[in-house]
């Protein structure tokens, strides 16, 4: 990888190319100004009050819920692959002499030199951050926030603990545990599509909210199955709240959205926590076996 490749006349050509790209993209963006079509979004907004009271939650976890499932997968796979680069899961061919895997050494931490004030300040801060992450998670269906945010906030508490107290920090999550809850979170999200699939045939149909078969919104033709009351009892009503808006009062429910959020949070905690832990301390298989 030589930096010579972009010097001299090649550099000039590259700059000209970049300028062409810049001019092209910026003219197109200028033309877009004032011409943005609304398309499908008014329809989403019209339905919003019937779904999760938080418009964002119903977009992310209901209308585009399956997108978010795969996006969650991006985080999970990202953690998997990052940790693979460090050494978890490298495979060898039987009986064939191969080059030894590239080894990464762990980062050097000096916990002993830490200020006493920080050391005593650390635990309450970690407790507060964890509490905040749980608050964000539980309020996801009714206010801004959700699983992603909870996971990120929680793992920031984990990182803080690692920096302040080293490997034996108050949260003390092991690699196996993090991998486990990461997988559990994604699996929970994936399997929460199952109730809707079983009763209506649509994967991840929001069973609790149940707009289309409960008659809240009329004019639907072709919806075959109706959600049984028992399912609505289980998934819907605990979350049902009255939403008083200027154009009327809506009985609104988030359905399975809060549960999806919990799965999401587990997944993100597992993934990002694992990246923090393995990037700081390296990965060795032996430790995994002893546990």
């Amino acid at each position: 990888m030589e930096s010579k490749a972009l010097k001299g006349s090649r550099g000039i050509i590259a700059v000209i190319a970049l300028m062409i790209i810049f001019v092209g993209v910026s003219t197109s963006l200028l033309q877009l100004n004032g011409n943005v079509a609304r398309g499908i979004s008014p329809e989403y907004n019209a339905l919003a009050p019937y779904e999760a009271p938080n418009n964002l939650a119903s977009w992310v976890y209901d209308y585009r819920g399956f997108d978010t499932l795969i996006e969650t997968g991006v985080i999970y796979v990202g953690a998997l692959v990052s940790v693979l680069a460090i050494g978890r899961g490298i495979v060898r061919t039987k009986g064939v002499a191969e080059e030894a895997p590239v080894a990464q050494s762990s980062m050097d931490f000096h916990v002993s030199s830490l200020n006493v004030i920080l050391k005593y300040f650390g635990i309450p801060v970690i407790i507060l951050i964890v509490a905040y992450s749980l608050l964000v998670l539980t309020g996801a269906a009714t206010s801004g926030g959700g699983g992603f945010q909870c996971g990120v906030i929680f793992s920031s508490a984990f990182l803080l603990g690692m920096i302040f107290y080293g490997k034996k920090n108050p949260l003390n999550l092991s690699k196996k545990f993090l991998i486990g809850i990461g997988g559990f979170g994604w699996a929970l999200y994936a399997l929460l599509g199952l109730p809707g699939y079983l009763v209506t045939g649509y994967w991840q149909y929001n069973v609790g909210a149940d707009l289309w078969s409960s008659g809240l919104i009329s004019g639907v033709s072709g919806m075959s199955a109706v959600v049984p009351d028992i399912m609505r009892q289980i998934f819907g009503d605990p979350f049902r709240i009255l939403l008083v808006l200027s154009d009327g009062t809506y009985a609104s429910t988030a359905g399975i959205v809060p549960l999806i959020n919990i799965g999401e949070a587990f997944n993100v905690i597992g993934a990002i926590g694992l990246i923090f832990l393995v990037f700081a301390y390296g990965y060795t298989d032996e430790e995994g076996k002893s546990k």
């Binding site: 209901d62 649509y202 994967w203 149909y205 004019g219 639907v220 072709g222 919806m223």
Partner: peptide, 19 residues
């Protein structure tokens, strides 16, 4: 086809369909 999350399509004339 499969319409994930079971939201119907909006007909140009108004109203919704699952076809």
């Amino acid at each position: 086809f499969h319409w994930f999350t079971g939201q119907p399509a909006v007909l140009p004339t108004g109203g919704y369909t699952y076809r």
